[in-house]
Computed example of a mutant assay.
Amino acid sequence: MGSMSRCLWVLMVAVLATVGLVPMVTMAADADPLQDFCVADNSTGVTINGFPCKPAAKVSVHDFTFDGLKKAGDTNNKNMVAVTPASVIQFPGLNTLGISAARIDFAKGGINPPHTHPRATEILLLAQGELYVGFVSTNNTLYATVLKAGELFVFPRGLVHFQLNVGKSPALAFAALSSQNPGTQQVAPALFTPDIKDEVLEKGFRIDGKTVDMIQAEFRDM
């Protein structure tokens, strides 16, 4: 077999291997739509992996418009941040389209604490201010930088990530996420709000019982 033939054979094997992986990749994301659109009909009370479709005859252009990101959120809270989501819950026109968005307002010093989106990759556009942003890989490597206005940063799906306003003024960012319903789970509240046995937290974080009680009280009062 000549070198050209071997190259073609290797290329063919690579293509077939890639095609074989496509179903595995697509299973890890929102399902592909089976029609032009499927505006969510939340009035039925039906619970499925997604939302039932509103009858096409009742769909209007207003179902594909959302103005909820125009106004700044209220940053008067412990984290000094306001996340305004535009997922299928708030914007039914996103149903089956595999995408959503969010507005994130930061007061000076505000933080969007370490959290994950189990169903989506997130890309963040900083519109105003300076943010220290980053994520941690599954081998505990930190990828972090300071973003300036107009710059983008991507947070891979499911990985713990954060944003901190390190500028001298409020900051504003917009996020796009690769799921109609990405989900958000903040790390600290997820562990210290439920009634997890203290011994688990003491050993898991290598802290004593008094520290566990102190942190639990902080999050349970929020």
Rank of each mutant, 00 (worst) to 15 (best):
C38D: 11
A176R: 01
P52W: 04
S5I: 03
L177T: 03
F155A: 08
N95I: 06
V61L: 11
V61C: 06
L191Q: 02
T75M: 05
V10E: 06
R220I: 06
V39R: 09
G209H: 15
L97C: 05
S87N: 14
G98R: 15
G20K: 12
A82S: 10
I111W: 00
R220S: 05
I196Y: 14
N76A: 10
V187A: 13
F91A: 00
L16I: 11
M4R: 10
F66M: 07
L147E: 02
L8K: 13
A28V: 01
I111C: 09
I123N: 07
L172C: 08
F205H: 09
P194E: 09
E151P: 02
A29K: 14
I89R: 12
A101P: 06
V136I: 15
V166R: 14
G110E: 00
S87C: 08
L97A: 09
D74S: 01
N140E: 10
N181D: 15
Q90I: 09
N49I: 10
A72V: 07
V166H: 13
T18A: 14
S5F: 02
V13H: 10
I48P: 10
G68F: 04
N139I: 15
K70W: 10
V25G: 09
N79P: 00
T138I: 01
R6N: 04
L126H: 04
M214H: 13
A101Y: 04
L34R: 13
S179Y: 07
I48R: 13
S60Q: 02
T121W: 01
H161Y: 05
T141I: 13
N165S: 09
V146T: 14
C7L: 14
N181W: 07
P114D: 07
V160R: 01
N49F: 13
F174S: 06
K148W: 05
T141H: 11
V166M: 09
M12L: 15
D30H: 02
C53P: 09
P113C: 00
E199M: 14
H115Q: 08
A101L: 10
N140Q: 12
I104R: 04
P52C: 06
L16F: 13
L131M: 03
Q90V: 11
D63A: 09
A17T: 14
P55G: 10
L11P: 07
